[in-house]
Structures are given as C-alpha cells and as structure tokens.
C-alpha cells in the first residue's frame, strides 16, 4: 500500500503533464487556417508565437483550437504552447509560403551605353501574396520589349526564390522595357540605352579672321548613334610656344572652337579614351 500511493501520484502527474498536450499540423501553408488538437480538460491559455505574430487567448483544453489564416500569413517557424494549471506543453510547426504571385524586379543600370555586353542585370525575387519568398516556384518569364521592334522573351528557373538574367543592350539608342512575369504578377522597368563612347573622331579646320576655326564632324559612337550634347571633346594645339588644351562640350552634335594660331601648329582632338585625327595648320 505504501508503494501504491506514490505510484498513483506519478501516474496522475504524468496524466496532468499530458493535459497540456497539443498537436498542430507538422506543416501549414501561409494564409490558410488550421485547427490544433489538444488533450486534457479545464481552462488553459493558448499561445502562438510566429515570425510576426503573438497570440494569447483562453481556451478549453481538450477542444480543437482554430487559428485563422490571417494569423498565419508569415512563412516560417511557429510555436504553439498550451498552459494549464498543471504546466505547459508546446509543439513547433512550419508554415510554408503560398503559391508565387508577386515579383520584386530589380533592373540595373537605368541608363546603359548601347551594345554593352551583359551590361544590364535583371533580378526577380519571387514572393507569395504575403511577401514570403516563394522557394519552390515555376520559372519566371523575362521579356525585352524594345520600341518599334519585336519583343523577345525567355524563361529562367527560380532557385531559392530568385531568378536572374544578364542582357546585352541594343545597338540603337532609345528606351526599352524589360519585364518579368509569374502567376498574376507582371512587372516592367524602363532602361534608357544611350550612345556609347565617341568613335572615329574626326576634325577639320578653316581659316577665319583671327586664326582657325576647328570643328569636329558629327560625333557618333561605333554603332552610329549621335553622342549626346554636353559630352566633352578636348582640342590640343602644339606650336612653337608650347601646348594648349581646351575642353569643349558638344553642341548640336559637333564640337568647335576658334583658335588664334600664328605660325605652324598641330591640332588634335580626343573624347574619353578616343583620339581623333591630327591636323597641321598655318605656315
């Protein structure tokens, strides 16, 4: 008899420990309601701690606890806890992202020189409706929608919620649209393709009343696009006195400067890393 009573106490203690047991599903989907089974009896406090939520409410142990989808919108680790008068029991579970339906599209740079090989980086982060990274997703469809030309598109796989592609800019300057699509999401960014560095810089000179007027031919890049106004062309004059360099911005497609030259002189021009022809004037 003296050994039976402690045994019964142990059994009762074990029973009361079980009283706080709860059994959530091992996995759930973001935004979907779940029901958590509990055992035991009497009043208890239910807690649910998630990535962005903390729930605390009074429940009846032994009944099922309904958790609304609104409280399970964040994908990640949740801990369900049930505390009765005899202690607490807990059970963790994972909430997985819902179906992919949103995109965060990053396109860099926003201005790119023409014919720039792999010069445009396009990265799409794939999310579900609740901003969870969708780690399992069908491919993302990337599209290039140039003005006055046929659109081009290609699928790229999503790994760990990310799909990406590198693009070469067109040979003709102007805007182009770059898009990405998945589910109901369709994002578009605009990239401005601008003329690249000047190419085949050529200058010519004409006498004027004070010396020479030195002028470039229309300055274009290697694809034939006019280099934007404001791009600097450096004119260098070497004569018996020494060397003089003058920076001149392009206006209406050409750069020009009046140079007071006495005697013989050599004139050259450069823009960026490109040098043009050399003239010998005077005499």
């Amino acid at each position: 008899m003296s050994k039976t009573i402690p045994f019964l106490i142990l059994v009762a203690a074990a029973w009361s420990a079980r009283a706080a047991d709860l059994h959530p599903p091992s996995e759930a989907t973001a935004g979907n309601s779940i029901s958590i089974l509990t055992s035991g009896s009497g009043k208890a406090t239910f807690y649910l701690i998630g990535p962005a939520s903390v729930i605390k409410r009074q429940v009846q142990a032994g009944s099922d606890i309904a958790v609304d989808g609104d409280d399970l919108q964040n994908s990640g680790r949740y801990i369900a806890i049930l505390c009765g008068s005899d202690g607490c029991g807990s059970s963790p579970f994972l909430v997985n992202p819902a179906a992919p339906n949103r995109l965060s599209l990053q396109v860099h740079p926003s201005r790119v020189p023409v014919a720039s090989v792999n010069g445009i980086s396009v990265v799409a982060f794939v999310f579900d409706n609740f901003h969870n990274l969708a780690l399992r997703s069908p491919p993302v469809k990337f599209s290039i929608l140039p003005k006055d030309e046929k659109p081009v598109s290609a699928d790229r796989p999503v790994e760990n919620g990310v799909a990406w592609v590198r693009l070469t800019s067109a040979r003709k300057q102007g805007t182009t649209e770059i898009g990405a699509a998945i589910g109901h999401a369709d994002e578009i960014r605009v990239v401005q393709q601008v003329a690249a560095e000047a190419c085949n810089l050529r200058i010519h000179a004409n006498r004027d009343k004070n010396g020479f007027l030195v002028e470039t031919d229309p300055v274009r890049d290697c694809s034939g696009n006019p280099v934007p106004d404001g791009t600097v062309v450096s004119f260098t004059m070497s004569d018996a006195v020494g060397k003089t360099t003058v920076d001149v911005p392009i206006k209406r497609g050409v750069a020009k400067i009046a140079m007071p030259i006495k005697g013989r002189a050599r004139i050259s021009a450069a823009s960026g890393v490109v040098t043009g022809n050399e003239l010998e004037v005077g005499g």
């Binding site: 990053q106 860099h108 792999n118 980086s121 990265v123 982060f125 790994e159 760990n160 990406w164 590198r166």
Partner: peptide, 9 residues
C-alpha cells in the same frame, strides 16, 4: 547562395 550581378542584393 546568390549575389546579384549589380552587387545590390
């Protein structure tokens, strides 16, 4: 596991 080509993520 992923470093964006532009270095921004």
């Amino acid at each position: 596991i992923f470093y964006a080509p532009a270095g921004d993520a």
